[in-house]
Design a protein around this nucleic acid. Sequence first.
DNA 1: CATGGACCGTTGAAAATGTCAATCATTGGT
DNA 2: ACCAATGATTGACATTTTCAACGGTCCATG
Lengths: 155, 155
Amino acid sequence: MSASGKTRVPGRDALRDSVLGDDLVFLLARANALTLAAANAALAEHGLKARSYSVLALAADGARPTQRELAEFLHLDPSQVVALVDGLEQRQLVERRTDPADRRANVLVATDAGRDLFARAQQAARAVELGLLATVTPEEHERLAGLLRLLAFPD
Amino acid sequence: MSASGKTRVPGRDALRDSVLGDDLVFLLARANALTLAAANAALAEHGLKARSYSVLALAADGARPTQRELAEFLHLDPSQVVALVDGLEQRQLVERRTDPADRRANVLVATDAGRDLFARAQQAARAVELGLLATVTPEEHERLAGLLRLLAFPD
DNA sequence: CATGGACCGTTGAAAATGTCAATCATTGGT
DNA sequence: ACCAATGATTGACATTTTCAACGGTCCATG
């Protein structure tokens, strides 16, 4: 062989060096897909997916979000939140409490069991995240999170 | 008022400061959703979505990818690639050529019209990307791309 | 050179997600 | 007291994802 010590499959990495290799939207989509798959796999043993994990997380740390707020924050349709909360409530991980300040709204609160499960699931989630970024310094890890926050919450 | 000069809606940003605010998987999902929506909106005037744009991009820069390679690279099921290519081929933006080296495989090539459209769409796509990261230095922009590549292509 | 297992693209169906409109109960402004 | 606006819910519909099966082609064996 000629040039360098690269271990690249011919067809595959010609694509990686193509126009899309610099396309942020594409990189984001692909990174998200892989990352999501890893997270779902890790959360499966707790009976959760990334979605239900997120809802449980927000219920578990006492923010007392309404379903509307959940929908906005998770970028979901309110009807999807209904289904998600239904699932968690049936498993007694979470309770709907009508907001005393606005009786149309339901506020989400985690049960003890919910907090327990979340604590365990969170460990798994953190392990995945560290595994994904194992090759990167903690500073870069945090920098990535910061830049993603900019994209995720454009004020 | 009391503490700081923050302009935060009470309910909304309590969530942002919750556990999920540091969760890479969540940030990635949300950033991806917003970014994808912006890209789709911008590409719509060219009759494309992020998906078809990606396929067209890979066909247009002469990498001559097979559909299998496309599927792997775009993290899609081969059957989805069929539909995507069907659409582009019907619009005469792309051609299927059976790979002379392996007559099972189709190689994708952009037509002149396809390259033209891609050139225009690419400008729109770049504008979106710059708009999304307008508040960030070019160095940080590139750093973000680099970190996302790590997640998107874990070798 | 014949054969069989693996691979490519295609099809079709099933499951999961995303999107939307209509409804009921409640709220808050006038 | 009224009425437009809002939160949750339901049900319908479109889109996306995932999977299994198939015909055509390749290639490593015998």
